[in-house]
Write a protein that binds this DNA or RNA. Structure first.
Length: 604
RNA sequence: GGGGACGUAGUUCAGUUGGUUAGAACGCUGCCCUGUCACGGCAGAGGCCGCGGGUUCGAGUCCCGUCGUCCCCGCCA
């Protein structure tokens, strides 16, 4: 029934034939994308990853083959030997690149059949995601997915080429390792050889890449899978791919140049020319102007209401008016209707161009922010007016308020900003990519649950030279909320694109004495530090050169360039929100025998 | 862990204040058709209304629970 491939060789891909190939013989192989049956004349579109070509079966010229082609159904796999024919002007299909030609079939081999698929790759409507993920192999046949995965390949390729040209070596690091001290939960792999012990899958190759610098490889990169056992989001998968790099003797600017170089190459491969060097903004500035450590730079900065209103004004407007003002009103942005202006006049007098959004609206659209607001107000015996108007000398309060404001502004959504003309778009998609370096992240952040300072990045992050004295002076204040530890700036930086964090990095600590001080400031005894990072502390003692690096999320870069709204669109085999692979149905229970071998009991 | 949306034919969806036999489109099957390219025409098959319980004379529809998918918060560079 079915034919064998034999020694038949494909001559062209299905998207390749053009008028120049007219009258030549061609052998195409691919899937039946669609058939159009006119009785004695049958058209079949054959598809592969490059496109589709129309095949013609004509009963008059070859009755047996026409009959055989009548058995074809969607998604059958076929090989067609035929003659390329230039189409008559009237029958040219301008919608496809191969539309000027068709293949007149001389021979047909049916290489495989297909059951009726739950959906067809050529369907206009997408099935729901559950079905797509269960039949991922069919979903991946869709043109959009083929394009996304191709784009991903191209981006990874040019990044490899660029970094290689800059003297970086791609070096593999272990997947089965011990946990590196980033914040997230680890995926664990039980050891059979040593029952009761576990490997961890890496959240990042952090310590290995630092050790590669100690080992003299000078410049390292890896396009590498990382694992984090945390809840998923549209832009967060439990396994994801990072462009990870590390280099010796760098100032932050040296790292940034490398990143800008490969991002430029990557974006060019996707058809976008971006300009380097990216603008830079300190963390403090980002919080103050955008209320976020990943500013959406297409929006103008927020206005500090203190610059516009007097303390007396603020008192008059009432507590709940102030935050929205800070959040959304920026001079020259948006239009306030006459009606709104009239309403606003009563409240704001000469500042009627400021729009009014009240607390009810915040509560509706962003209840948690309203809670935070209340929290802020509660934290200070004076109300919010006092915080905003008069007592903004407390950095924590201002930052907190700015964050709420920034989050609220974003929550209004792109549509809102679009409608009010807030987006500062150029019309040219290439220049609408607003990259930004956010620099000088704080070294420590206050954990209000544990009532202690924790590393904001990770404990191997170097600090500003000028802040060393501050560290030494406050080395025993890990539990003091108002400790100046919070003012210490790290040599840590993020690269941000249109409000999305693409990557994060830092200059690392290369001196053992400084590393000890950091651990001490975190309340860790020498013994504890040795126990957790002994191998690394030891390595630091054998001539460690200054080094630093960064890691960028490849998936997110591809997602943005593919204009996708979920990572699942650019990852071939992603997991659902509950971290399940619907195609292979993982995770699953394992047999008692397997567990026994590992010395593991599962609670029932 | 919390909040929200959704779940009806292979697929995408509709389904009225609870009321007789649950519909459409695409796909699928058969027949017709020699220039279509989302071909067209005729005929047909196809339903555990996610699952379990409850209210009711009567449940796709109301209530409770549960499972699954998506979005968000917490969490997470």
């Amino acid at each position: 029934m079915l034919d064998f491939l034999g020694d038949l060789r494909r001559t062209h891909m299905c998207g390749a034939l053009r008028a120049a190939e007219a009258d030549k013989q061609a052998v195409l192989m691919g899937w039946v994308n669609r058939r159009r049956d006119f009785g004695n004349l049958l058209f079949v579109d054959v598809r592969d990853r490059t496109g589709i070509t129309q095949i013609v079966f004509d009963k008059d010229s070859n009755a047996a083959m026409h009959a055989k082609a009548g058995d074809l159904r969607n998604e059958y796999v076929i090989a067609v030997i035929g003659t390329v024919k230039k189409r008559d002007a009237a029958t040219i299909n301008k919608n496809i690149p191969t539309g000027e030609v068709e293949l007149i079939a001389n021979d047909l081999r049916i290489l495989n059949e297909s059951k009726q698929p739950p959906f067809l790759p050529g369907d206009k409507d997408l099935p729901n995601e559950e079905v797509r993920l269960k039949y991922r192999y069919l979903d991946l046949r869709r043109d959009a997915m083929q394009r996304n995965i191709e784009l991903r390949h191209k981006i990874a390729l040019v990044i490899r080429e660029y970094l290689s040209s800059q003297a970086f070596f791609e070096i593999e690091t272990p997947f089965m390792t011990r946990s590196t001290p980033e914040g997230a939960r680890d995926y664990l792999v039980p050891s059979r050889v040593q029952p009761g012990t576990f490997y961890a899958l890496p959240q990042s190759p952090q310590l290995f890449k630092q050790i590669l610098m100690i080992s003299g490889f000078d410049r390292y990169f890896q396009i590498v899978r990382c694992f984090r056992d945390e809840d998923l989001r549209a832009d967060r998968q439990p396994e994801f791919t990072q462009i990870d790099l590390e280099m010796t003797y760098p100032q932050p600017e040296r790292v940034w140049e490398v990143v800008e170089g490969f991002l430029q190459a990557a974006f060019r491969s996707a058809g976008h020319d971006i300009r380097t060097r990216f603008p830079r903004m300190s963390y403090d500035e980002a919080i103050r102007l955008y209320g976020s450590d990943k500013p959406e730079m297409r929006l103008p900065p927020m206005t500090d209401v203190r610059e516009v209103f007097s303390a007396a004004d603020l008192e008059k407007f009432g507590v709940h008016r102030v935050l929205p003002l800070l959040a959304i009103r920026t001079p020259k942005v948006g239009k306030v209707s006459r009606k709104e202006k009239d309403e606003n006049k009563e409240l704001f007098g000469s500042h009627a161009e400021f729009n009014l959004l009240d607390i009810e609206r915040i509560e509706k659209s962003m209840p948690e922010a309203a809670d935070q607001l209340k929290g802020l107000a509660e934290a200070n015996p004076d109300d919010l007016i006092a915080i905003v108007g008069a007592k903004l000398d407390s950095a924590v309060s201002l930052a907190g308020l700015c964050k709420v404001a920034g989050a609220y502004r974003l929550r209004l959504g792109d549509k809102y900003h679009e409608k009010h003309g807030a987006f500062n778009r150029t019309g040219d998609p290439s220049t609408d990519f607003r990259f930004l370096w956010v620099t000088d992240f704080p070294m420590f952040e206050w954990d209000k649950d544990e009532k202690r300072w924790n590393p904001a990045h990770h404990p191997f992050t170097s600090l500003h030279e000028e802040d060393m004295a501050k560290l030494e002076a406050n080395i025993d204040s890990v539990h003091e909320a108002d400790s100046p530890l919070g003012e210490i700036r790290a040599l840590a930086y993020d690269v941000v694109l249109n409000g999305t964090e693409l990557g994060s990095g830092s200059i690392r600590i290369h001196r053992q004495d400084i590393q000890q001080k950091i651990f001490k400031s975190l309340g860790m005894t020498e013994d504890e530090a040795r126990q957790r990072f002994g191998f690394f502390l030891e390595a630091l003692e054998y001539g460690t050169p200054p080094h630093g690096g960064i890691a960028l999320g490849l998936d997110r870069i591809v997602m943005i360039l593919a204009e996708a709204d979920s990572l699942r669109e650019v990852i071939p085999f992603p997991k659902t929100a509950r971290a399940v692979d619907l195609m292979v149905d993982a995770p699953t229970p394992v047999s008692e025998a397997q567990l026994k071998e590992l010395g593991i009991q599962v609670k029932k």
